[in-house]
Design a binder for these strands. Structure first.
Lengths: 335, 335
DNA sequence: GCCGATCAGGGAACGGCTTTCCCGGCGGTG
DNA sequence: CACCGCCGGGAAAGCCGTTCCCTGATCGGC
């Protein structure tokens, strides 16, 4: 690997001068020398060692992003927004997948800290477990104490700037609409219990329906298509007379749709199905899924903006609105 | 940010000793001192500066991954495979999105080089433009010359180890099946022209159909749902009597399905539709999309394995098979 | 009891780059 | 003509760890 010293030697100048030319320092360098340095750089295919640079100058430029799983469409979309802003600002992004393992999440925070990242963006639902939260908080605090910036997406209980999707409000909208359409016997396909996203949406739904949701009509499963399918099967078997199924994310909704089709249940004539998130797939299934739209990419973009902007003294919290997307899978309750 | 010197001072030992304790060096350290160092580390919440470590020891541990766009399901899946293997081997992955801009791709190679990554994995279709390829090759060569490892996914013409999806063979299978079912008037929704993926799949399709594909029955567009939708509309308008539409990836296939539904064309009774890649969504649309399955995660996993394994002297090339997934969107040609 | 071997711990060099500080030379000015 | 100031360039001091090498001390053997 060619070093700056190699370049300087080849150009017949000092490393100081070479560095100045390469970084476009404000200190003027004679054209002749500049020329020689540039030529040497090209000939040696010199690329400065980013670690040495980082060590030599205080300024940190990369940003760490911690998501549950980038290949999940939800996070893929959030990440897109994060990346867009980061790229606009000339920041490199390191993406880490915690795969929903809180312990790995903590490890990754340390790893990002070791990388001297300028900011850490935590995306995705938080957990209810206080032990886990305390541990994570402790690490984030250690990071923030050294001047690191923290932004979280969709987690209430953490330090740092936050941008929150209107999970509760979106679910409330959904509940109110179901109620308006006469649905009274409603089953819920919920995500994993320990996630705050699950409980937030559940709470909003109950508020919108204007009645408590009996646990017997809720099934908890993974936030995946198969999870939704299994949970829907259980629910259907356990609760006769269901007129609507609320999936707490679109993947589960799609799974439910599939199961219903397999069982010959008509949607929405016999049973209505609604989802959450408005992922691209929601519009493409049949019947097209009625769902709650969350501005996912925007969530990411806002979070990255907060993370990169100068700290505003106090932690800033932004809430991004959710709205109902009417498609074909929701109809009036059958008489 | 606490440094090793801080830790050493607080523990009342030399930095050398502190370092040895922290890294579990083979050199023995008295329990008493070890204890003191560990306590200091905990109290100061010390995390070693990864950049300083990288500078101090020759060993490089992070791997760079360059994809078109992680939020595209195709790359999301490939990335999942890449990550899995990287994590198993204790490697951190830096993911970069080129957004299909060859120039940005070259920039990112340099950036990864600057980061001293142990290996670079290039995922996603290559380009036909020889200028672009030459430039990229030149940078990769510079990287490889300094001991960097390169692995590519789905690109023929680059140095380094390669793992290739059987694009051509998969398309051949598809073509043969269409022919068997009596389709003679076939339209193609192709991806961007400059991509080798597009031309490979086109070539395989023609081979399977056992007849050349007239350009008039091909429409080039983005590898997206909307691209597919638009291209399908054009094709339908331009070519009367079409009995089948081949989309060169599933997103385009889904777009086509949507357009056909909007126009009241029955699938597959009037027109058959097939896709490519077998992304999760393919099974969930109605009718479920017949497509060619590519082992995407496996592609990623193999590439990462090649990249991390000791170089085998010559560049290794692996091809992963494609197979036909029969679903509902393909039927016999109408009489 | 003395010498050499062994061992734990510390000093210091090193990795690659940036940046401050200093020096020599030039032009301008009185 | 002498002096001052400015300017371009280089020497060198870090940044933060790791590790080689050395030192001082302890221990074993004769």
């Amino acid at each position: 690997m060619a070093t700056l010293a190699d370049v300087a030697r080849r150009a017949g100048v000092s490393p100081a001068t070479a560095s100045r030319v390469i970084n476009g320092s404000s200190k003027p360098v004679a054209d002749e020398l500049r020329e020689r340095v540039l030529r040497a750089v090209a000939e040696l295919r010199y690329v400065p060692n980013a670690h040495a640079q980082l060590l030599a100058r205080p300024q940190r430029s990369v940003v760490g992003v911690l998501v549950h799983d980038v290949s999940d469409p939800y996070f893929a979309e959030v990440t897109r927004g994060l990346q867009r802003v980061a790229t606009e600002r000339g920041r490199l992004v390191i993406i880490c997948n915690s795969y929903r393992d809180p312990e790995r999440e903590v490890e990754y925070v340390d790893l990002l800290r070791a990388q001297q990242v300028a900011a850490i963006v935590l995306a995705g639902s938080g957990y209810h477990d206080p032990t886990v939260n305390a541990l994570l908080d402790e690490r984030l605090a250690a990071y923030a104490a050294t001047g690191g910036r923290v932004a979280v997406i969709g987690r209430h209980r953490h330090r740092g700037d936050a941008v929150l999707p209107a999970n509760e409000e979106g679910a409330r909208l959904l509940g109110a609409e179901l109620r308006r359409l006469g649905h009274r016997s409603i089953g819920v396909l919920a995500g994993p219990r320990p996630l705050t996203t699950t409980s937030d949406r559940l709470a909003g739904l109950a508020a919108g329906l204007d009645e408590p949701l009996p646990e017997a009509r809720i099934r908890y499963a993974d936030f995946t298509r198969d999870g939704g399918s299994r949970a829907a099967a259980e629910l259907l078997d356990a609760v006769p007379g269901l007129t609507a199924i609320v999936a707490l994310n679109d993947s589960m909704g799609v799974g439910a749709l599939n199961l219903l089709r397999a069982r010959g249940v008509r949607v929405p004539a016999d049973v209505s199905v609604v989802g959450f998130d408005d992922m691209p797939i929601a519009a493409d299934v049949t019947p097209a899924l009625t769902t709650v739209r969350l501005p996912l990419a925007e969530l990411g973009a806002r979070a990255m903006t907060l993370a990169l902007d100068a700290p505003g003294g106090r932690d800033r919290v932004e809430t991004l609105p959710a709205d109902l997307v009417h498609r074909d899978s929701l109809g009036p309750a059958p008489a």
